[in-house]
Write a protein that binds this DNA or RNA. Structure first.
Lengths: 246, 246
DNA sequence: CGATAAGTTGATTCGCATCAACTATTGTGG
DNA sequence: CCACAATAGTTGATGCGAATCAACTTATCG
């Protein structure tokens, strides 16, 4: 089930850097392999399995889940269409987490050896992929800062703002609403909150008229207010215009 | 004040991947520029300043500090000798944080253009530097997980274990003690704890006989106990043996 | 040796975990 | 299509972890 529809891949990379003709052609020549996953299915297993591919999300949502020594599961990243889920696996030996589908999720896989070969021919492309991993790192830092300074309702507000911005960048915000594959019960492994308390925080956001959250969809009714509450400054996502690197 | 003593640079990179003769030679040919900083001094300014160099720590400690919209300062990384403090600045346009000296700190700077030129000639080296940034990202994830699951005393235990492991890897643990340029008052911007509570947590670690912490030095008196309390599994630091990438 | 900053202690308040019930929703098989 | 089971969401009561404010003690340094 290999196909060569690399439009999304090229689109997502050109959001990061201007691609030359030949670079785009080379990318278009990659073998991409679609892979569909039902809710809860493991897309990439963590730990010792040395995967042969790296994957990016085509549709749906994927979560990175790591299990701590105490047995708790922590979600360290959420992925929307256009995000690589395990690009760092190209360079690091083994993943420190697994990736699973949150709702139905389709990914495309690229053979690591093909990608590495591509980098040897077009070294500048390696930098574009590198940049992709660095933006994820900035998101990690934003989460760290949020965790250190915000309270439950503020953190949730921050997170909703982030999702809104990321969905907006890929054209998935309609009016003021966007898909929300996560459920309230998932907020605890995202933020380390109890279900009960996360629920009360969400209800407060609703009561303040900041958002509506029904199963599967969030409608942001007061984006400015939500940003103010969550101390959200979306620049860290680097979704604005980009410049070409050396 | 340029010098060419690139031994530390080559040492730290070869901890990540086996370097070929020619790669090592090329690295040795880089112009490195020493730069000394007193406690509290800014080593790299965040924000709009487009720095021309990237730096790694030679001695002492450097902190990454980001300021949130609410005005609070968050430490998102600590750097010990051998760590790059702003390598991601090579690929990203602007830094989302500043870097400052914690205690006296010496760094060496490399011109970005020199490094980029090096990557064009030795594309595989780019991968080694990429890997360096990815390991930092793993540390971020470990902190995220710690923040979501651990309580104050456990988080501090976890952090002390991490520092112990990183100092051990560079030969700076003597007996069971290592340098601790951070003071208790810094723990609040690291973990989002208040000074009073961080202090009580530290005292509990002392009372349990896990560590001694006098100004400037930590002695770990029960490493196993500290690891158990902090749920510390140091594999994420990738300080073990490494393999050569493509 | 005084001044300043770091560390310590206590009292109080608040955010959040925990446990437990309960309701609403979704999904499923008869 | 309905009845039921399973799961998500909601609400309340209680206790603990951590913030906050304030005083105080101990280091550090000029």
């Amino acid at each position: 089930m290999s196909n060569t529809d690399s439009r999304l891949l090229i689109l997502l990379l050109s959001r990061r850097d201007t691609l030359s003709e030949s670079e785009a052609e080379a990318l278009a020549g990659l073998n991409l392999c679609n892979s569909d996953h039902a809710h809860g299915e493991t897309i990439v297993a963590g730990g010792d399995a040395d995967a042969e591919t790296v994957s990016f999300v085509v549709s749906g949502m994927a979560l990175r889940a790591q299990v701590t020594l105490s047995g708790a599961e922590v979600i360290s990243a959420v992925h929307v269409p256009g995000d690589f889920v395990d690009l760092h696996g190209l360079v690091l030996e083994r993943l420190d987490h697994s990736v699973r589908a949150q709702g139905a999720c389709r990914v495309q896989r690229i053979e690591k050896r093909e990608l590495s070969a591509l980098f040897r021919e077009y070294p500048r492309l390696a930098r574009v992929f590198w940049k992709q991993t660095l933006i994820e790192t900035k998101i990690h830092r934003a989460w760290l800062a949020a965790g250190a300074t915000l309270r439950a309702n503020e953190r949730i507000a921050h997170f909703v703002c982030e999702l809104h911005a990321r969905y907006a960048a890929i054209g998935l915000v309609r009016g003021n609403s966007f898909p929300m594959p996560l459920e309230q019960k998932d907020l605890d492994s995202l933020f380390g909150l109890s279900r009960a308390h996360a629920n009360r925080a969400v209800q407060e956001l609703r009561a303040r008229g900041l958002l509506e959250w029904t199963r599967g969809t969030i409608a942001v009714t007061d984006l400015e207010g939500l940003r103010r509450l969550g101390k959200f400054d979306g620049r860290y996502l680097e979704l604005g215009p980009r410049r070409r690197a050396d």
